[in-house]
């Protein structure tokens, strides 16, 4: 007697394949990451705790970290990097959020134009941005020449001050910030906003009680991405920032390349990595939380 195979009878095989296939698909990038990132990173972390001992041996020690945190110049650079990251991220969110909200809810031709303008910096390489900034706001730049021409006092240029990298990084990071926030705002429907207005909410109440809670994950992702990018940035701080204090990116490069102090450069890299790891973990946590929520049928 012929019996058709029940779909259920194939379920275990299908589910086993469906479990293995995604793992195989991610195997290559994971192995590459292990080889090129995880292993060198782990090795670097270990090596920072190994210092030369007596008789050419190596001993476990926290001397490298003691040296870093005992050196006021290094600490100033670290603090300056934290400050630049915090200020730039804050400015990006303060500018990016209203822009994203406007682009999400405004109708007509103007929002499309605004969006194109917001996205424009994405297509300009950092080095070009840096030189454009120098030519515009730097000493004897366009603004300076204009002020001089109209008889006004010369401006104090932000170039080569801690604000130089901030301005450059804000310009550079705005498109990604707005894109990430816009994707988060996709969770906020127009009827949800209309319903809030209908019960009496003004724009501030809508922002605080309706919009922000519904884009918590997106805000965390935006925050993480910006901190990761800014904290470890090199080009803009190198070209626009002051010589001292400097950001960790140029500081590491100089320690490694000019001073050829590999051990200290490695320690700086591990400290930078540790800070980025915190925000990386925040990003992974927010993504995992979002996935769990959607798997449970919840709406964010």
């Amino acid at each position: 007697m012929h019996e058709a195979a029940s779909p259920l009878s194939r379920t275990p095989a299908v589910s086993a394949r469906s479990r293995v296939l995604p793992l195989l698909l991610v195997a290559t990038p994971v192995l590459l990451a292990l080889w090129l990132v995880i292993w060198p990173a782990a090795e670097a972390v270990i090596l920072t705790f190994l210092v030369p001992g007596e008789g050419g041996t190596e001993v476990w020690s926290t001397a490298n970290y003691a040296r870093f945190f005992g050196d006021s110049y290094s600490v100033n650079n670290f603090t300056n990097t934290l400050w630049t990251t915090a200020v730039t991220t804050t400015i990006l969110l303060v500018i990016g959020l209203p822009l994203a909200i406007y682009l999400r809810f405004a109708k007509g031709q103007l929002p499309a134009t605004v969006q194109s303008l917001v996205m424009f910096p994405m297509f300009v390489p950092s080095i070009i941005v840096a030189y454009a900034f120098i030519r515009t706001l730097g000493p004897n730049g366009t603004v300076d020449i204009f002020l001089h021409a109209v008889g006004l006092p010369r401006m104090r240029t932000p170039y080569l001050t801690p604000w130089g990298p901030v301005i450059g990084l804000v310009w550079d990071g705005l498109p990604l910030t707005v894109l990430l926030l816009l994707s988060g705002l996709g969770n906020v429907t127009r009827p949800a906003v209309d319903a809030a207005r209908d019960v009496g909410a003004g724009w501030l109440a809508i922002l605080v009680y309706i919009i922000l809670p519904r884009m918590r994950s997106s805000l965390l992702v935006t925050l993480s991405f910006n901190v990761l990018g800014i904290f470890s940035s090199f080009t803009l701080p190198y070209l626009l920032g002051p010589a001292a204090p400097e950001m960790m990116g140029p500081f590491m490069q100089r320690t490694f390349g000019d001073l050829q102090d590999v051990g200290m450069a490695r320690t700086q890299a591990v400290i930078t990595f540790a800070v980025c790891l915190l925000f990386g973990a925040l990003y992974v946590w927010s993504i995992a939380k979002g996935r769990t929520k959607s798997a449970a049928g919840g709406k964010s």
């Binding site: 429907t189 009827p191 949800a192 209309d194 319903a195 809030a196 209908d198 019960v199 009680y209 309706i210 809670p213 519904r214 919840g298 709406k299 964010s300």
Partner: peptide
């Protein structure tokens, strides 16, 4: 006025 929307428009959080 009070409006009831087609999509319910409840605040899911």
């Amino acid at each position: 006025t009070g409006m009831v929307f087609q999509s319910h428009a409840l605040w899911s959080h």
